[in-house]
Amino acid sequence: MIELDNVAYSYGGAELFAGLDLTLAPGSFHFLTGPSGAGKTTLLKLCYGELIATGGQVRLFGQDARGLDRDSVAQIRRRIGVVHQDCQFLDHLPVAENIALPLTVAGHGSTSDDLRDLLGWVGLSKQAAQLPPELSGGERQRAALARAVIMSPEVILADEPTGNVDWEMSQRLLGLLVELNKMGKTVLIATHDLSLIRAAKAQVSARVLRLADRRLQLAGASL
């Protein structure tokens, strides 16, 4: 699905990381941890074509990310659901329409039943008609997750999806991601929350990666 081959990235100064290899196989479940500022978000951005590697090669569904035109990037984003750390929405549209936005821009009509189910799943049924700026931090994250999965994408990349929600809700969101993974979706979650990782390991076989000191290492055993 997504392959990183000897990848390096720099925002112009020193390299944030280098020599990074990673393969997200279909149906796999990964966690990405590491200290703040290590480059987790940057790594995710490489995985959905928002940034282009300054070294090495990133292949998205077999295509070299460097050679993609903007239409192809748009096409690829429909196959990858992303939960952004900063949860950006269209602030003038109600939450429900924001969640359905990937369907709208892809030209698919959303069935209101699916949308209602999804809203229920992330606990936002009551907030459906509110505007994003009126949501709490946790509600925004749930809305972002709902938006990421509504297209039923092949890959789900989630950046701190449970950063602002309580334990119970984080378990529910994790449950949703696990469910999707069991349906065959590839999942990558960047998180600081080790208890979340532990909870997940009880449900799926997840690999835990740690990004630190410019390197990516497998850290599964230490947990």
């Binding site: 239409d71 952004h84 950006q88 269209l90 936005l101 821009v105 892809a106 297209m151």
Partner: peptide, 16 residues
Amino acid sequence: AQVIRVMRLVGARDIY
């Protein structure tokens, strides 16, 4: 600009 960024993130093509 912000609206355009969000629409891009959810896979909107330029023409859309």
